[in-house]
Design a protein around this nucleic acid. Structure first.
Length: 110
DNA sequence: CCACTGACGAGTG
DNA sequence: GCACTCGCCAGTG
């Protein structure tokens, strides 16, 4: 046990995100011990290989939008699909209501 | 070693 | 709401 994998630390937090909920890069960074380094989370997820057991699709930006979709990445479609499949409603502009689905930010109120 | 790029966030105008 | 700037870390050539 050693290995101070910056990325591994982030993956550990992302894996804790419950299904049907989303969180922001900044929150993940904070919980991982990298407060203020939201970018690291993005970089770590970008290095994530395909077929990983990490629910990266549950991580969005502080604006409540899907960064991938905003960028126009083809992977953005996958993220949106997976979220909606878990019960997360995604706006036409690729925006999610953090007030409802935000993990650790607000208790979902159906 | 230097320069550039990249899944962000907060502040400013 | 949008455009621009700065800070921070990792990978590549």
């Amino acid at each position: 046990m050693k290995k101070g994998g910056t990325h591994e630390r982030i993956y550990a937090i992302v894996r804790k995100i419950p299904k049907g909920r989303v969180t922001t890069y900044g929150t993940v960074a904070r919980l991982a011990g990298f407060a203020g380094q939201a970018r690291l989370v993005g970089y770590a997820l970008s290095a994530l290989p395909t077929g990983t057991a990490v629910p990266w699709h549950r991580v969005i930006n502080a604006q409540g939008k899907l960064s991938l979709e905003q960028k126009g990445s083809s992977s953005g479609i996958t993220q949106r699909l997976r979220l909606e499949r878990e019960g997360v409603k995604v706006d036409a502009a690729g925006r999610v209501a953090l007030a409802t689905f935000g993990w650790r930010l607000a208790i979902g109120k159906p």
